[in-house]
Every structure is written in structure tokens, then in C-alpha cells.
Amino acid sequence: MSDRKIRVVVAKPGLDGHDRGAKVIARALRDAGMEVIYTGLRQTVDQIVDTAIQEDVDAIGISILSGAHHHYFKAIIEGLAARDASDVIVFGGGVIPESEIPDLVKMGAGAIFGPGTPTSTCVKWLEGAVAEKRKAE
């Protein structure tokens, strides 16, 4: 009767200080029974990747409102690959134009949640994605 909780890093990469979304999603994930490693503001890509590996998380959620999403998604996904950790799911939200989402998904992002997405949608998606991933292990 093992109880394998879903573990997620929620991080704010870069210099953007708007953390309302990150904090709301962190609480929603907690309230859905997940363990959220919250790393706060001004995280570098290396810090986020290191944290994900040391904490053995299933997923990394990042919130970006500064327009630098392309840069950070790319760097984090590549950083995970370089550490042989491509199984870690990367998802995110923030001010990201819909037209740029396909690009991010192609890059390897699991899902992008725009403004106005209910937290329950993110929770449900993440539960499904983690279940998928664990099945493959």
C-alpha cells in the first residue's frame, strides 16, 4: 500500500516578480494532495533543473509573465535532457500568446495554461500526465 505522492516544483524563472499565479497554482496543487516544492522568485535555469533532480519530482511548473517564456522553456527542457531527466514533465502558464503555444509544445512543454484557466483544469491535466508517465516507467 505504497502512497506515491505527486511531487512538483513550482518556480518563477528569471527576474519577473509577479508570483500571484505561481502561488495560486501551488496552493491548488497542494489542495489536490500533491507535494509542491516552491522555490520562489529569480530562479536560474540551473537552479530549477537541480531542484527537480534532487527532489525527484514528477513535474516542473513555471510561471512567466515577462515575455521571456521561449527562452526559459527551451533552456529548462534542454537542461533536463542534459541531465538525463527528460521524463520530468514541464508545464507552465502566464502571459503567453496562444499563437506561440504550439512552438513551446513542440519543444517539449507538456501544457501551457493561459490566463483564466481554472486551477482544476491544471490539476486534472497534471494528474493524468503523471499517471501516463509512471505507467511508462
Binding site: 489542495d31 489536490a32 516544492i37 516552491y38 522555490t39 520562489g40
Partner: peptide
């Protein structure tokens, strides 16, 4: 602490130690 209601938790101690990541 874990939430007694959901069993989930927000783990934020690490934030103070991030200078050692890497």
C-alpha cells in the same frame, strides 16, 4: 507540514538554500 486535509504540502524551506544549488 503536510496539509491534514488533502495530504499535500507546500515545501518552501529550500528557497533559503538555493545559493547552494549547482
Amino acid at each position: 507540514p503536510s496539509s491534514p486535509f488533502s495530504g499535500g504540502a507546500i515545501l518552501a524551506d529550500r528557497i533559503r538554500m538555493q545559493e547552494h544549488s549547482g
